[in-house]
Amino acid sequence: MKRIHLIPFLSISFLILYRGCIWLGLLFLLISSPLWQEAYWRWSVHKNGWPVDGPHIVYDTAANQTNYESGVIIRGKSVDFPFTIRKSEIENEVRYTVNDSVGRHLWIKTAAQLKQGPDSLWQVIRSAEQLSERQQKAKIDSTLRANPEVYIIKKRNGYYVKEPSFMSYFPFRMAGGYGPMPKSVLIKNWQNNNANDWEFRFIDSPTVKVRQQPLQLSHDYYLTFEYRTWRQFKTIPISAILLNRLQFLLAWMALLIGFYQLKRLFEDLSENRYFGPQQSRRINRVGWVLICYFTGNILLINAQNLYVRSYFAKQNFHVHDGFIPVFPDNWSLLLSGLTLLVLAHVFDYGRQLKEENELTI
């Protein structure tokens, strides 16, 4: 009785998996799309009432924000000035705090108190404050040039950058061995073999970085492309985008075809059609889907491996001369595919025996 009830259950299960795979795949494509991220970011801009055109500098003096900064350092300690001057605002009153080289408070005074004191001290404060403002403006200009989509939020005591919160990325794997090294001898300490989280950033917008996985025995390298907006996505090389999307499409199509064939197979079995000609063909198709996916996945990950090597070469980096192929970890897919091919042959043989038995009778 359990076996009889199991077949309809599996038929319904693969029907759910087949339909769910369709919608989940489409949902993944939508969420990972930069157009979706761009639309959400534009909605956030409209919701907050930020300017769409013109300078993206928003003045927000609310002190109860989570990103509110209690103060800004207008002069840091140096060799000739072993103190730190911090400007803050408490209860609508501007105060200046001076700390020594180890961070201890020396004194806290308001602007009115400093003006009543020695002019030399107030001049030091004012010159440091003007220099800090010029540095902030230069940093803001540089940030807006590199990322036109971001917004600079101005608080009472400083600025912070507001950018799209959603970030998508895709990594490409290069087999381990002698890792990438800059050809320029001016770059020192390129690799830190003792680091557990080593990475180097090539580009900031969109972020392109290489990372090593030292905890793995293979010491593989991963070239990662990160993007937040449609403008950043368009700057990624089209070859990298195609290699990434092809890998997803390959897995998605393999799941769709496999679940569909299994759904139809168990539908036939639930109607007591055990040794029909369609059953062996469907099992055979599922086996070939697993084998083709395994083979296609090997080709794609090795194409990504070659792409990472060529990317480093374009960045004037040197990688090891010998190409090391990458093999997937899921060898069980190949074994499952071969097993299903044998099972399909057994089904076909059983059908032939049944037909011969019927002719004999």
Rank of each mutant, 00 (worst) to 15 (best):
M253W: 06
I324S: 11
L335D: 04
G287Y: 01
L299K: 07
I298W: 04
L255W: 03
W252M: 15
Q261M: 13
R264P: 01
Q261L: 09
A251H: 11
L290Q: 02
E267C: 06
A254S: 09
L340F: 14
I257K: 10
L256S: 13
G276A: 14
D348S: 15
Y349M: 10
W288F: 10
L262T: 01
D348E: 15
A254D: 00
A251R: 11
Q278P: 05
D321V: 04
F266D: 00
V326W: 01
W331G: 03
I291Q: 03
L340V: 13
N297I: 03
L262A: 00
L269N: 06
W331R: 14
F327A: 12
L306S: 08
L250S: 15
L333A: 01
P325E: 02
L343F: 13
W288V: 07
F312R: 02
N330V: 10
R273W: 07
L341F: 05
G350I: 07
N316E: 14
S336V: 11
G337Q: 03
L269W: 14
G276K: 12
R282P: 00
D348L: 13
N305R: 00
K314F: 08
L333D: 03
V326K: 01
Q315S: 12
S270D: 12
M253L: 15
I298M: 08
L265V: 00
H320R: 06
L338S: 07
N330P: 05
L290A: 05
Y307H: 04
P277K: 12
Y349C: 10
V289R: 02
S332P: 09
A344Q: 03
L335P: 02
A303V: 09
Q315G: 12
H320T: 08
H320N: 12
W331T: 14
A344F: 04
A251M: 15
A313C: 03
Y307A: 03
G258P: 08
M253T: 03
P277W: 05
I324Q: 14
Q261G: 01
G276W: 09
L300H: 08
L341I: 12
A254N: 00
S332A: 13
F266C: 00
P277H: 11
S332C: 11
L335R: 10
S280E: 08
I291D: 02
I283A: 02
L262V: 00
I324C: 09
A303Y: 04
L341C: 03
V286F: 00
Q304K: 14
